[in-house]
Design a protein around this nucleic acid. Structure first.
Length: 296
DNA sequence: CACTAAACCTGGGAGC
DNA sequence: TGCTCCCAGGTTTAGT
């Protein structure tokens, strides 16, 4: 479930650990998760060797984010594009800190690597683990940011909702989409970064039913959606994201925004605002929860 | 164009 | 205790 707030929180938590560190050695235990030249999820073992060779010796200069992708930048201009998909994690440990959940490692299940550690980056100080239970995620190497952008068609993505470019006007194209509001917000082409959790939370806050057609949105409702996104996403980032299932920050600690959820995972429960029962429906093949009273 | 389902995977929980 | 079944979300792709 890493959505924008989770990826952004992870990015921030990785920065102080990774910037300035050099990769001394790489272990790729699940070849299908990496690529060295744009061919995703290849089983080709030569490409694993290529990946290892190209990444080894690189120093991290910065970590950025585009939509739900993390981009790890290197001195040479090359970069790694990381997508966590459903269950990916990036966890950093070092001899000094050896942290897990903000405290020193104590139990065996806090030990790394474990059976879901698929890529291990040994740094000149500390170790970065890519863990992924379901292995939907990936780590792609690109020799330059330009090539990464080209292959990944980052330019077909909509506006970044945390950027200064994001304004009410950015959401006006919603009114031209002949699909449901939820579908249009999940599609990433108008605004990026929202997933199942935050679309439901945003719709609730805006007072809009997610299964209505986007063409039915009034101007005021577009404004409400804009305001809801502006309020919810920064707050979620501030709280480290929503740790449902297995999302964690780079030191193993959890984000706390899940306690702020008003509708996500609350189908059949009582609406905090009006006291009515929250409705649970399936939309776009995804579980969707809304309040029939508060959302119109 | 927009929808739906399936696919990619595994583990956790419910129900029996 | 242990089995089966269903569910979880991000994204792409194939089919309607």
């Amino acid at each position: 479930m890493p959505e924008l707030p989770e990826v952004e929180s992870l990015r921030k938590s990785l920065l102080p650990y990774l910037v300035g560190k050099t990769i001394r050695q790489v272990e790729v235990l699940k070849p299908k998760l990496v690529s060295a030249s744009g061919t995703k999820r290849s089983e080709d073992f030569e490409k694993v060797g290529e990946f290892r060779d190209k990444v080894t010796g690189e120093m991290v200069t910065d970590i950025s984010r585009r939509a739900k992708h993390l981009v790890i930048h290197f001195t040479s201009g090359a970069c790694l594009v990381v997508h966590l998909k459903m269950t990916g994690q990036l966890v950093y440990t070092s001899e000094e800190t050896h942290l897990w959940g903000g405290h020193p490692i104590q139990t065996s299940e806090e030990q790394l690597p474990h059976k879901h550690s698929h890529i291990i980056f040994h740094l000149d100080q500390g170790t970065l683990y890519y863990n992924d239970v379901r292995m939907f995620g990936y780590v792609l190497y690109y020799p330059s940011l330009a090539q990464a952008s080209q292959y990944h068609a980052f330019d077909s993505l909509g506006v970044e909702p945390l950027s200064q470019d994001f304004m009410r006007q950015s959401l006006v194209p919603l009114q031209g989409k002949r699909k449901t509001i939820k579908s249009a917000l999940l599609a990433q082409d108008i605004v990026t970064g929202l997933g199942n959790i935050y679309v439901d939370e945003v719709c609730f806050r805006a007072g809009v039913r997610p299964h209505r057609l986007a063409t039915s949105l009034s101007d005021d409702e577009v404004t409400s959606l804009y305001q809801a996104i502006c309020e919810i996403l920064p707050k979620a980032v501030e709280m480290g994201g929503s740790s449902v299932a297995n999302y964690i920050l780079s030191d193993g600690s959890k984000g706390t925004y899940a306690r702020e959820h008003k509708v996500y995972n609350r189908g059949g429960k009582v609406c905090f605002v009006c006291g009515n029962t929250l409705e649970k429906i399936t939309l776009q093949n995804r579980t969707t929860v809304y309040c029939p009273q508060c959302q119109t």
